[in-house]
Design a protein around this nucleic acid. Structure first.
Length: 522
RNA sequence: GCCCAGAUAGCUCAGUAGGUAGAGCAGUAGAUUGUGGUUCUAUUGGUCGGGGGUUCGAAUCCCUCUUUGGGCACCA
């Protein structure tokens, strides 16, 4: 596709769906990751990092036989040819006994869970071959991980990116419901540690077995049918019960005129499903939710098993001091992903964000997770139970900024003003003194050294203070400190000299660090 | 992939009986050659998203592509 009319240009620009992260956002992101990680670690999870690039086969589901980018994954062929291995890990040969070489398909990771499965399976591979591990004795593995993941989204909604961060924690190798209860505790505590007050979010728990059991009781036995129904129900809080009813039945027509095909379920089934969700429209205390589930759920074994698990989760949460305000049972929770097999989790933000036309916009889920059995199965051939959850770092950061919980502005260092280039050694010494006290300091290195520029730079960087040292100060053994924060606030003073007198003062060189410390800690 | 609405200066936008463009903010410079904010003055910025068509003439009308926003579908 050569441009025909003009020479192809080189335009400096980002790939669509990718972002530059400025210092302010980086600071916020680091805060989120650090606080949540501390909580994860306090529960015993250990931090792992894995490569962003993996063999496409290992990531699963996705098996490209062409070189095209499809299915939402960035992939390409390895420029390096490598041997093809058989299922026992041995190099395969052709009829001339030559090792078969291939350029394997590689893919950027699309989440952190698939690489987790690979790490876990890779560590067990030899034992697996020797038959020393099986579904009866999977080792316990608890790790947390954060970093960028990549998805080739065709349509980019606002707030959706092709590179974004996740912050996961998972327990692999335990089928104990206690591990699921713990997920709720970790999520709740992590968000509080990040600085979200308890009343601004809600941890919600449900169980896929409950939903499965409900549908079975109503005669839905087919898995793909079940998935279709769950997908519609997942939209409940978005479109409302009536719309869900219609979509389960004959379908409906969107306000915009777009028709939405219905599943065409029989009237009686739609009504039964609708009735169940009406019963849980209002948030109830966990005890009451359990009691009502007990009444409404059919005597299907799956349903009862799911209910027992929820009951157990409630017990354990209560024992650990997590009451209704910190985690709630929500039988209407579905979650989109198909691979969940047991308890599922979601954190909904209760903060609203001012929309374009002044209306309040709700932000969706900021965390999600659940139990999944089969992720490792594809790699090792037997089921390994696992449960965990993930914080959507970027979505949370955006939420904090938009809702006014965090200000998106990085604070700059103390700026050492350069009066006279000849005194540069003195400025370096001064900056070193400030840094030695553990405070950030920067000497001005810009091209134009007039003071106006230097202060404009300090203002732009949001520096809290500027430190000035000229011949006068040097002779007196002092430095002049300018309080830029106060200066920014004193907009009512119009007289230049008076304004200056208000915001700057001389300090003995020896007491400078202490004075700056006081100012920076405000 | 579908429906709707946009694309004009760095940003937010104005600009219809079709006659090659304006405002506010930002930027730059000065008042203030040892000073950011505030105030005042001057001033730089635009192939009006790309291409094609209608016309003597198009930011304005038509077609098309690209792109942005709002809905929907999809989301391992």
């Amino acid at each position: 596709m050569e441009p025909q009319k003009a020479q192809r240009g080189i335009i400096p620009q980002k790939i669509k769906g990718f972002r530059d992260i400025d210092p302010a956002l980086n600071q916020l992101r680091a805060h989120i990751v650090e606080k949540a990680s501390q909580v994860y670690a306090r529960y015993g999870f250990e931090k792992w990092d894995t490569p962003v690039l993996e063999y496409a086969d290992a990531l699963g589901k996705y098996m490209p036989d062409t070189a095209t980018v499809e299915e939402g994954v960035y992939s390409f062929q390895n420029p390096e040819a490598e041997p093809v291995l058989d299922s026992r890990g041995k190099e395969m040969s052709d009829h001339e006994d030559k090792v078969i070489m291939e350029h394997h398909h590689l893919a950027l990771r699309y989440d952190l869970t698939a690489p987790l499965a690979r790490v876990y399976a890779e560590r067990l591979w030899m034992k697996h071959l020797r038959g020393q591990v099986s579904t009866a004795n999977p080792p316990l593995f608890r790790r947390f991980q954060h970093g960028p993941v990549y998805r080739y989204e065709i349509d980019l909604d606002p707030g959706r990116f092709r590179e974004f961060w996740q912050l996961d924690f998972d327990t692999v190798g335990s089928a104990d419901v206690a591990a699921d209860a713990e997920v709720c505790m970790v999520l709740s505590q992590a968000l509080e540690a990040i600085g979200m007050p308890r009343e601004t979010f809600q941890v919600k728990v449900n169980n896929r077995k409950v939903l499965k059991g409900l549908l079975r009781g109503l005669g839905v036995l087919d898995d793909s049918r079940e998935r279709d129904i769950l997908r519609v129900i997942d939209k409940l809080d978005k479109v409302g019960l009536e719309a869900v009813r219609q979509e389960l039945g004959a379908g409906r027509v969107e306000k915009s005129g777009a028709p939405i095909a219905g599943l065409g379920l029989p009237e009686a089934l739609v009504e039964a499903v609708g009735a169940f969700f009406v019963a849980f429209e209002q948030a109830l205390p966990r005890e009451q939710t359990l009691a009502r589930l007990d009444e409404l759920l059919p005597q299907e074994p799956v349903a009862r098993e799911g209910l027992d698990e929820l009951r157990r989760i409630h017990e354990l949460l209560a024992a650990a001091g997590f009451d209704d305000s910190r985690a709630r049972l929500d039988p209407t929770l579905v979650r989109g992903m198909a691979y969940y097999t047991g308890p599922i989790f979601e954190v909904e933000s209760l903060l609203t964000v001012p929309g374009k036309k002044g209306q309040r916009r709700k932000v969706g889920a900021i965390c999600g997770g659940g139990r999944y059995d089969s992720l490792v199965e594809r790699l090792l051939g037997f089921k390994v139970p696992a449960t965990g959850a993930s914080i959507g770092v970027d979505r949370l950061a955006e939420l904090l900024v938009l809702s006014g919980q965090a200000r998106p502005k990085a604070t700059g260092p103390a700026l050492v003003v350069v009066f006279d280039e000849a005194m540069m050694p003195e400025y370096q010494k001064l900056a070193a003194e400030i840094r030695a006290a553990g405070l950030p300091a920067e000497v001005f290195y810009g091209a134009a050294k007039n003071l106006k520029k230097q202060f404009a730079y300090a203002d732009e960087r949001d520096c809290p203070v500027a430190v000035m040292l000229g011949e006068d100060e040097l002779a007196k053994g002092v430095v002049t400190v300018k309080d830029l924060v106060k200066g920014r606030q004193s907009q009512d003073i119009q007289d230049k000299d008076q304004w200056r007198r208000e915001v700057q003062f001389e300090v003995e060189r020896a007491g400078l660090a202490e004075k700056l410390r006081q100012m920076l800690l405000r």
